[in-house]
């Protein structure tokens, strides 16, 4: 079966909404490359934080199917135009996600804690002066403050809270966000991490990292408790050398 993702010509747009760019493509490629695992995993509730044009959540919904297979999608953005555009993009592809205008997951954190199986995020990650973060307009779609971490550092604890015991987080970073430090912080919260996609464009080195909880304890439908095997935590040494290698890479296909 061919894997369907969102068609660029069917993605809606608005001057104040982030258009699908190298980072969006990297995130969707990461989901595609992990699609078999995702299908085996059979998530019930999938969520995107900061959906922008809707390119990513639409692609995920096309990849995994809709309610027939029992998957439900939710997407948030702080920008009302982004939700409008996402709604048009979803519609153009014949899929549905519930849309909520929220600061990360405001209003959902209490009742959805521990219920979300998959979270995907392409955050505002560009290092900028602190006062550019969260301003009105298109800059807020990418402005990330010092090291690009202002919004990222607020998303990670929310993801920890929302993810189910077997939940997965796919998140996009730049090498300048110091992802190895992020992996260590997530390790303290009990998460393992693996780089799924790495890509160097002219201006930036992009990484998509998948996080999952260490040795999650799973209750199956009979109420039996089983422990699933997890992939080993990526050694920090190899992450470190990978990052330094990446920073020397250059490719010439930057287009956004």
């Amino acid at each position: 079966m061919s894997s369907k993702i969102a068609r660029i010509d069917l993605v809606s747009s608005h001057p104040e909404v982030y258009e699908p760019c190298d980072d969006s493509f990297a995130l969707v490629d990461a989901l595609l490359s992990d699609r078999t695992n995702l299908l085996d995993f059979h998530p019930r509730l999938c969520m995107e934080v900061g959906c922008g044009s809707g390119y990513v959540i639409t692609s995920l919904a096309l990849m995994l199917g809709q309610e027939t297979t029992g998957v439900h999608y939710i997407a948030t953005d702080i920008n009302p135009h982004a939700l409008q555009v996402t709604s048009e993009t979803l519609k153009a592809h014949g899929v549905h996600a519930e849309l909520i205008q929220a600061d990360i997951a405001s209003g959902l954190e209490k009742r959805m804690a521990g219920l979300v199986d998959v979270i995907v995020v392409n955050p505002p990650y560009v290092p900028t002066p602190e006062d550019e973060v969260g301003q009105e307009g298109i800059a807020s779609t990418w402005a990330g403050g010092e090291n690009g971490r202002r919004v990222i550092d607020r998303i990670l604890p929310v993801a920890d809270r929302l993810l189910s015991h077997k939940g997965w987080l796919y998140m996009l970073f730049l090498t300048s966000n110091n992802p190895s430090e992020i992996c260590l912080q997530m390790k303290d919260k009990g998460f393992s991490a693996r780089i799924i996609v790495q890509r160097a464009t002219e201006e930036e080195n992009l990484l998509v990292i998948k996080f999952w909880r260490d040795s999650p304890v799973q209750a199956d439908t009979n109420g039996m408790v089983t422990t699933t095997k997890t992939e080993p935590f990526m050694a920090m040494g190899s992450l470190g050398s990978l990052f330094s290698r990446l920073s020397f890479w250059r490719s010439d296909n930057s287009s956004c």
């Binding site: 939700l83 409008q84 709604s87 849309l99 909520i100 205008q101 929220a102 600061d103 405001s106 209003g107």
Partner: peptide, 13 residues
């Protein structure tokens, strides 16, 4: 009140 417009609730404070 948190308004719902075109099916989208606005939960921003």
């Amino acid at each position: 009140k948190f308004p719902v417009t075109k099916g989208i609730p606005n939960m921003l404070l």
